[in-house]
Design a protein around this nucleic acid. Structure first.
Length: 624
DNA sequence: ATAGGGTTAG
C-alpha cells in the first residue's frame, strides 16, 4: 500500500510526466510515481482518484499501467461509486495497453470490494471477455448480470448478444435474443452480424426477413451488404441491397466498393468510387488495395500519390502490395519514406512486409536495423514478426541468428516452418529433420508448408530414406494431401539419389498434371547421372506436353554433351535457334562489405564477377 | 490528457 504523501500544491501530472524520458515499462515509471507523491497527487483519496482517472485516459500505455498500479496498491475505493472502477476497467479494455485479464480482475475485485457493478461496468467487462476464446469469464459475468437488478435492461441484453456473437457462439447469442421481452434495432443488428460473421446466411436471411421495416436502419442495411459481399457469389445481391436501401452513408459506399475490389472487379469499383458523394481515407485505401491485389501496381501508386491524406493502413497496403507484386526495392523505399516523411510509427504489419522485402533482396543490414527497432520497442515476436525475422535471417544466410530468434519467439507452426525451411535451403537437412521430429514430440501439427521444408531439406542433404519416410508420415499420419510442390521434392530426392525410374513413377502416378519445374528437375537428374535413355524419354514428354522451354533444351543438350554425343548437341542447339529463344540469364546477388551486388550468371563483364565466383567457391568449401 | 456504454467499413 502506498502511504498518503505530504502535501504540496498539485501541478499538472502530464507536465511532470513529460519532463521524464519516455516510459516504456512499469519500472520506468517508478521515478514518475515518486514525483507524483512529492507533488501531492496522492495526498488524499480524492486527489489520487483524480490522478488515476487522468492517467487512465492517457494514450501512453505506460501511464495507463501506472494508473492501474496506483489504483490497486492504494485501494482507492470511493464509497459505492463504481465510477473509478469503471475507468480502470476501461483503461484495460480499450486502446493502448489493453489487457483483458486486468479488466476481468478489476471487475472481480470490484465485486469483492462490495461495489455493485452498473451497466457501464458490465458492458466494459463483457467487451474484455470477448477477447478471451474461452467462455468461462463471460459466462460468469452473464450470471452476475442475471443476479443483479439490471437483468431486464434492454441495453445489457444487447451487450450479452454482442459478447456471444463476437466469440462466434451465435446459438448462445440467439438464446438471449429469443428470450428478450422487447428488442430494438441494436438487438437485431447485433444478432444478424453475429450470424453473418459465422457464415450462417440462412439465419441472417430469416432474421432480416422478420425485421419490421421501421426497425431496419442504416446499420442494418450496411451489415447486410457486408455479409452478402463476403459470401460466395453474393456480390450481385449486395449490389441489389445497396441500390434498394432508403439512404446510404460513407460506410455503405465503402462496403460495396470494397466488395468489388476484393473480387478484382476494379472497373465496377472505380466507377462507383468516381461517383461517390464523399471519400475518406478508407475509400482510397480500399481501392488501392484492390489494384495491388489485381497486380496494377502503377494505378495503385497513382492513387496513393493523389489522395489527400494517408494513414498507417494506407502505407501498409502500399508496402505489402509492392511485396506481393515482387517490387521489393519499391517496398523498401516506401518503408523508409514512411518513417522519415510521414512521421508514422510502423506496426507489426509494416515491419513484417518490410522484412519480407529485405529477405528477398538479401539486405541483411536493413534486416538487422529492423530487428533492432523491434527490440528497442519491445514488440512481441509471437506473430508474423517473429516469423518474418526468422525467415529474413535464414534467407540472408544467418542461420545462427535465425535460430536465436526462433528460440526467443512464439511457437506457432509458422515459426517452425520458417526455421525448418531456412535450414533446408542451406543444406542442413539433418537439422531440419531434427526440428521436425521435435515438433512431433511437442504434438504440434505440421502443415503442408512444414513438409515442403522437410522434404526440401532431405533433398538437399541427400537423405533419401528419411525423405520417403516423411512423405509417408505426411499422407498417413497427418492426413495431408500432397501438392505438386511435394511431388516435386520427391522427384528431386529420388533423382539426386539416382533412382530415376522411381522418380519417373512419381510423376506419372501423381494425381495432378506435372508442371515444367517437376520435369526439369528429373531432366537435370538425368544429366547428373548421364542417363541418356531416360533423358530423351523425359525431353520427349516435355516437348510433347508443350511445357518445354529453353532451360529444358539446355539441359538436354548438356546431357548429350556429357556423353560426347556432339551431333545430338548440335541438333538440340539448332532447335533452340529455330525457336529464336532469348536467353534469360540467371541472376543472383552477393553482399560484400555491406553493399549488395547483383550479378548475372555467366556475365564475365561484371567487375566483381571473379571475386564473387571465388567467394562462392569458398562458401561451398566451408559447407562441405 | 482534461469524466464512462451496446450494432456496420480497410
Amino acid at each position: 500500500m502506498l502511504a498518503w504523501a505530504s502535501c504540496h500544491p498539485p501541478t499538472d501530472p502530464f507536465l511532470l510526466a513529460n519532463n521524464l524520458p519516455r516510459c516504456r515499462t512499469l519500472r520506468d515509471t517508478d521515478p514518475l510515481l515518486s514525483r507524483f507523491i512529492t507533488a501531492g497527487f496522492l495526498r488524499t483519496p480524492a486527489a489520487a482518484a483524480d490522478l488515476i482517472l487522468r492517467l487512465c485516459a492517457s494514450l501512453d500505455p505506460a501511464l495507463r499501467l501506472l494508473a492501474r498500479r496506483i489504483f490497486f496498491s492504494s485501494m482507492v475505493v470511493p464509497c459505492n461509486d463504481p465510477f473509478l472502477w469503471n475507468a480502470v476497467i476501461k483503461s484495460s479494455t480499450h486502446g493502448p495497453a489493453a489487457d483483458p485479464c486486468a479488466a476481468s480482475l478489476a471487475f472481480a475485485l470490484m465485486l469483492s470490494a462490495g461495489v455493485s457493478a452498473d451497466r457501464f461496468s458490465f458492458s466494459l467487462v463483457l467487451k474484455a471477455c470477448s477477447q478471451d476464446p474461452s467462455l468461462h469469464a463471460g459466462l460468469q459475468v452473464h450470471a452476475v448480470v442475471l443476479k443483479s437488478n439490471l437483468a431486464t435492461e434492454l441495453y445489457l441484453q444487447n451487450c450479452l448478444i454482442a459478447f456471444y456473437a463476437r466469440g462466434g457462439h451465435c446459438e448462445l447469442a440467439r438464446r438471449v435474443f429469443d428470450r428478450m421481452p422487447q428488442r430494438d434495432s441494436v438487438s437485431w443488428n447485433s444478432i444478424i452480424d453475429g450470424f453473418a460473421k459465422n457464415g450462417r446466411m440462412d439465419a441472417v436471411e430469416e432474421l432480416f426477413g422478420r425485421m419490421k421495416d421501421r426497425d431496419r436502419n442504416l446499420v442494418t442495411w450496411n451489415t447486410m451488404i457486408c455479409c452478402y459481399a463476403a459470401s460466395l457469389g453474393g456480390i450481385n445481391h449486395a449490389r441489389e441491397l445497396f441500390d434498394r436501401m432508403p439512404q446510404r452513408d460513407l460506410i455503405s459506399w465503402n462496403l460495396i466498393i470494397d466488395a468489388y475490389a476484393k473480387l478484382g472487379r476494379m472497373e465496377n469499383a472505380a466507377a462507383l468510387f468516381k461517383i461517390m458523394p464523399a471519400k475518406d481515407v478508407i475509400s482510397w485505401t480500399n481501392l488501392i488495395a484492390g489494384y495491388m491485389e489485381a497486380g496494377e501496381v502503377g494505378l495503385a501508386r497513382q492513387l496513393f500519390d493523389e489522395m489527400p491524406e494517408r494513414d498507417l493502413i494506407t502505407w501498409n497496403v502500399m508496402i505489402s502490395g509492392y511485396v506481393k507484386n515482387g517490387s521489393f526495392a519499391q517496398a523498401l523505399s516506401l518503408f523508409h519514406e514512411m518513417k522519415t516523411q510521414a512521421n508514422l510509427t510502423p506496426d507489426a504489419i509494416t515491419l513484417a512486409a518490410a522484412l519480407s522485402a529485405i529477405s528477398e533482396l538479401g539486405r541483411i543490414y536493413d534486416g538487422i536495423a529492423v530487428h533492432d527497432y523491434i527490440k528497442r520497442n519491445r514488440l512481441p515476436l509471437y506473430g508474423k514478426l517473429g516469423v518474418g525475422l526468422i525467415d529474413m535471417y535464414a534467407k540472408c544466410g544467418k542461420l545462427e541468428e535465425a535460430l536465436q530468434v526462433f528460440e526467443a519467439s512464439g511457437n506457432t507452426v509458422d515459426h517452425w516452418n520458417a526455421i525448418i525451411g531456412g535450414l533446408a535451403i542451406h543444406g542442413y537437412g539433418k537439422q531440419a529433420l531434427e526440428l521436425f521430429h521435435a515438433m512431433e514430440r511437442l504434438l504440434l501439427k505440421p502443415d503442408d508448408i512444414t513438409f515442403i521444408g522437410v522434404l526440401n531439406g532431405c533433398s538437399h542433404a541427400g537423405l533419401v530414406d528419411q525423405g520417403l519416410k516423411c512423405f509417408e508420415i505426411m499422407k498417413k499420419d497427418c492426413k495431408l494431401e500432397p501438392k505438386v510442390q511435394h511431388y516435386g521434392c520427391m522427384v528431386d530426392i529420388l533423382g539426386r539419389a539416382g533412382r530415376l525410374d522411381d522418380a519417373w513413377k512419381i510423376i506419372v502416378e501423381m494425381p495432378m498434371p506435372p508442371n515444367g519445374v517437376i520435369w526439369r528437375s528429373l531432366l537435370s537428374a538425368c544429366r547428373k547421372q548421364g542417363d541418356i535413355t531416360m533423358g530423351q524419354k523425359v525431353a520427349g514428354t516435355l516437348i510433347q506436353s508443350g511445357v518445354c522451354d529453353l532451360s529444358s533444351h539446355v539441359l538436354l543438350s548438356n546431357i548429350y554433351a556429357g556423353s560426347g554425343l556432339w551431333g545430338d548437341v548440335r541438333r538440340v542447339r539448332m532447335m533452340m535457334r529455330q525457336r529464336e529463344s532469348i536467353k534469360i540469364p540467371g541472376c543472383s546477388w552477393i553482399e560484400l562489405g555491406g553493399v549488395v551486388h547483383e550479378f548475372v550468371v555467366g556475365d564475365i563483364s561484371h567487375p566483381l564477377s571473379t571475386e564473387i565466383y571465388s567467394l562462392l567457391e569458398l562458401v561451398r568449401l566451408q559447407l562441405v
